[in-house]
Amino acid sequence: MHPQQQLALALLAYAAQRGLAVDRLARQSGLDTAALLSPTHGPLSAKQWHDLWLNAAQLARDPTFGLHFGEAATPAALGVVGQLVQSSRTVGEALTHGAALLPLLTDQVWLDLAHSPQSVWLRFRQLPTELAASATVVDHLVDFVLAFVLHELDGLLLERLQPRTVRFPPGARQLPEHLRVLRAATLAAGPPGEYSVELAGACWSMPLLTADYELQAALLQKITQWQAARPAVEPLRDKIAGYLLANAYLGIPSLEELAANFSTSARSLQRKLQAEGTNYQEVADAVRKSLALHYLKMGAYPIKEISYLMGYNELSAFSRAFKRWTGHSPAHYQPASASRSLPG
């Protein structure tokens, strides 16, 4: 399946998570969802690709739709591009592979890389094409790639990268969500037609943790099990639980981060959950419990690593929470043959 086709399907799946009418989105963008699922479909036309981004943002009423999609996406969304990024040994190698293969995803944007002992620079510029994308679509495309790169590296490095600076071309929109998602110390104006991100120079040679590739496969197995049992009409708590499961590879987000991806405020989201007899903490804990049990029963990961993935910096805090959820310590649920487990 062509990488652009896979990315389009991932965008439609994310739109469904956001509660958008996927059939309507596809129809407005000149796409046939059944045909798009065919391995022989191939890449989208320039107009289809342009319209899909534009219509998704308009239907979601989200001026940072690309940013939120990038924050939520996993390497599976990029197909072979994501696979090559994952198989890289270092951040620099992953970025080099990604830059070389970006044309498979879009012909509207180009990525140049530069690095020195002091800085790593990612510079995006719009390319002239037969069908020039609107400034809005280019904004969404660049936002997607920026957010995807930063948040996917979080998962592969088990630490959060914080750009020193993110620069936008003159006149480009700079919204509060850019500060939150991109975690930039500074948002600034850059040269015309160029978006850029500066990271610390030491990032280039950071090794990627291949153990997390196995972890993502385990998570995908868990998501598949959950999706098979989804009802046709879901309450909000189930939609949120599904979103958390689908993106748990990058950790459980805060209420504020989750609300931003649902295009609402934290207060409004909490109020709607309370009307269903629950709250965000309870939903997040239920997902943590489900994932923790899944990883423990696999017997492939030490309890300390599972604790970190569930958002706990201290093993003791995770053990207390787990005992509150289940009545037992984490070690109780690991197979006796698990050789990597630690005391719970």
Rank of each mutant, 00 (worst) to 15 (best):
R160F: 15
C203W: 14
A77L: 12
Y280N: 04
E71K: 11
Q225N: 07
R288P: 02
L315F: 07
A13T: 11
Y213S: 03
Q274G: 06
F124M: 05
R230A: 13
H294E: 06
A317E: 09
L113S: 05
S319D: 10
F124V: 01
E177T: 04
Q86C: 14
M1T: 04
P163Y: 09
A211W: 09
M1V: 12
S341P: 03
P191S: 08
F69H: 04
A60P: 08
A292K: 07
H294D: 03
H151L: 10
A338E: 02
Y195S: 06
A211C: 11
L255M: 02
A286G: 08
H294L: 06
A26D: 02
E305G: 02
R61S: 12
D62R: 08
A275W: 11
P176G: 00
E130I: 07
R320C: 12
H332T: 06
Q162T: 11
L12R: 11
H68F: 15
V142Y: 00
S116T: 12
G344K: 03
W110E: 09
F65G: 08
T106G: 10
K222N: 08
S29P: 02
H140L: 15
S339L: 14
R324T: 14
L182R: 07
Q118R: 15
R125S: 09
T96C: 08
V22G: 00
T278C: 02
P43G: 06
S87D: 13
E159W: 09
H68S: 13
Q108M: 06
A56C: 01
A100M: 12
I223Y: 11
G311I: 04
Y301I: 14
R24L: 15
A338N: 02
P192I: 00
P231I: 05
I252W: 05
S87V: 07
T326C: 02
L215D: 07
L7A: 05
M206S: 13
R271I: 01
S337D: 01
H41Y: 13
H2K: 00
D32N: 15
D62W: 03
P191W: 09
Q118Y: 10
G201R: 05
P3M: 06
V181P: 06
H294N: 01
A56F: 11
V109S: 11
Q334P: 07
V91Y: 10
R27K: 14
G171A: 10
R167M: 03
P75G: 02
P231C: 01
L215T: 13
A26C: 10
F168K: 05
R160K: 14
H97S: 11
